[in-house]
Amino acid sequence: MTSAVANSPFEAPKSGRWLLFGWLAFAYLIAAQAISIAISPPDRDMGDLQKILYIHVPAAWNMGICYFLVAIYSMRYLWKRDERDDLKAAAAAEVGTLLNGLTLVLGMIWGRPTWGVWWAWDARLTSTLVMFLIFAGYLALRAFVDEPERRAQWSAAAGLFGAINYPIVYMSVRWWRTLHQVQSTPDTLDPSYALSLRLNAFAILFIAIFFIRRRYEAALTERVAEHELQAAVLGGSSRG
């Protein structure tokens, strides 16, 4: 008798180690936040409001990493046709969209007291919002297409196009209008702010990796179950 797993082209994930990684990531995030709040003095202009940047800026950086992963895995899927690459691209898109939303909301909360408005039509804000909409469309496409292979090929194209479009969107809104302060890098900052930003950038990165892994595992488990169901309905243990 063949084991049930043989009916699926790949095995369901075992997530023991990753759960530990997740706990460590969350513990590290809390520590990084505590350290940054303790060591960085209140900003001359912004006061304690600048503490929000320790999530806002790392979230924005890691959003970029997530979208880059979507492009890489989408391309890899179209090249190798391994369903797992599609699921990884989807997981990265989900986490990227989440971080994108977080970046926008925290930016607005920060902008209201600093600039006096919730929203300004500046290049960085506007292109970030457009990216959010593009990947909301990507996730809607995945939700509205049921057949797995079709969903994988279509969303690979949509994900790749979305990522490629980012520099064009950014340039077009930049020409259209600009107001955002030059973006923060650790070099432009006081050392205590820089350390805090770096610590939290890695904290959000670890959380993002953990979330991507969990969402990927969930999607993979579901696909394995679907493969097994299909094999059972077709009657037999034919691989495929």
Binding site: L133, I134, G137, L141, A158, F161, G162, N165, V169, S172
Partner: peptide
């Protein structure tokens, strides 16, 4: 899908 992609 289309409108955000067409922003530029």
């Amino acid at each position: 899908l289309l409108f955000p992609m067409l922003v530029p």
